[in-house]
Nucleic acid binder design. Structure first.
Length: 154
DNA sequence: AGATTGAGCGGCA
DNA sequence: TGCCGCTCAATCT
């Protein structure tokens, strides 16, 4: 449970037995989302660097997943949803409703479960959007918007 | 075991 | 546009 500093970004990281089990996206220093990750500690610099490269688009999420030892600590339905998310290509999006149909659940539940995605960016849940607007995001709609613009989805 | 809570959606005016 | 009712897994109580 630490915060890793890369350039001018700060990334919350949780590692268990050498496996990444939770992370945040790169955030500004004072971000509320970093609070529960505690102090800055660079011992997991390697994890942080990969997430940073993923964030700026230097690598894609498949490369990142290959380079990182991670463990997905979620229930069955969440796992199914996250697996589906891996099929969304960079620059592409899917709606909560469409994704819900693929795994036989409701749009509301997709959003509810994605809110708990422990590995954002690695599992690019920002590519799931609402039908009428961009939809919500754990780290704020503006971050989601910036990510989608950066990826060329908008 | 029952109530509440959402990162949504479609229909209707 | 804005409101309403439906949705249903996870997380309380």
């Amino acid at each position: 449970m630490v915060v890793v500093k890369i350039k001018n970004y700060f990334i919350g990281i949780k590692v268990e037995n050498g496996y990444l089990i939770e992370n945040t996206i790169p955030l500004p220093k004072d971000s509320q989302y970093l609070k529960r990750f505690g102090k800055i500690d660079n011992k997991f610099q390697n994890f942080g660097m990969i997430i940073y490269k993923l964030y700026i688009g230097e690598i894609d999420n498949f490369e990142a997943l290959n380079e990182i030892n991670y463990k997905l600590n979620v229930t069955n339905l969440t796992r199914k949803i996250l697996d589906e998310i891996l099929n969304i290509k960079r620059g592409d999006t899917i709606t909560y409703g469409e994704l819900g149909k693929k795994v036989n659940t409701s749009p509301r539940v997709v959003g509810f479960l994605l809110n708990k995605n422990p590995l954002p960016l690695l599992y690019p849940c920002h590519r799931v959007v609402g039908k009428k607007d961009i939809g919500g995001y754990k780290f704020g709609r503006n971050n989601k918007l910036q990510l989608l613009i950066k990826e060329g989805a908008l």
